[in-house]
Amino acid sequence: MSGGRIAWNVVTSTIDKSAKCFGMEKLLDRVARYDRAEEVLEAAAQLWESFGRNAIVADKSAGVYIDPAQLQEFDYVGKYVKTRGP
């Protein structure tokens, strides 16, 4: 889609009102916010890397988008983020 280029500007909020959107009464302190953001990036990178080079088939006529044999399973468990993928 992007020809191999991507950018992601990762920032953490400074407004407690934003935390309420995620079920928190107030934001974590600055260090914890950035630790959490780092975990989100690590989990996202593992998800992106879990798709083999030929994982996306996108064969509309066959009704197949992804070849599951080309996916590598992983479990990411951090202090703040936990996910199975893909």
Rank of each mutant, 00 (worst) to 15 (best):
M1S: 14
S2M: 15
S2Q: 15
G4Q: 13
G4N: 13
G4E: 13
R5T: 15
R5L: 15
I6P: 13
W8G: 08
N9P: 07
I15M: 12
D16F: 12
S18G: 10
S18P: 08
K20G: 10
F22P: 08
G23E: 09
E25D: 13
E25Y: 09
V31R: 09
R33N: 07
Y34I: 00
Y34A: 00
A37K: 00
E38K: 05
V40G: 01
V40I: 00
E42Y: 06
E42R: 06
A43E: 02
A44D: 03
L47N: 06
L47F: 01
W48K: 10
W48A: 11
E49H: 11
R53H: 11
R53Y: 11
A58N: 14
D59I: 13
S61H: 15
S61W: 15
G63H: 15
V64M: 13
Y65H: 14
Y65A: 14
P68W: 01
Q70E: 11
L71S: 01
L71Q: 01
Q72F: 01
Q72D: 02
E73N: 05
F74S: 03
F74R: 09
F74Y: 07
Y76D: 05
Y76Q: 05
V77A: 07
V77P: 11
V81A: 06
K82H: 10
K82Y: 02
T83I: 07
G85S: 08
P86E: 03
P86K: 03
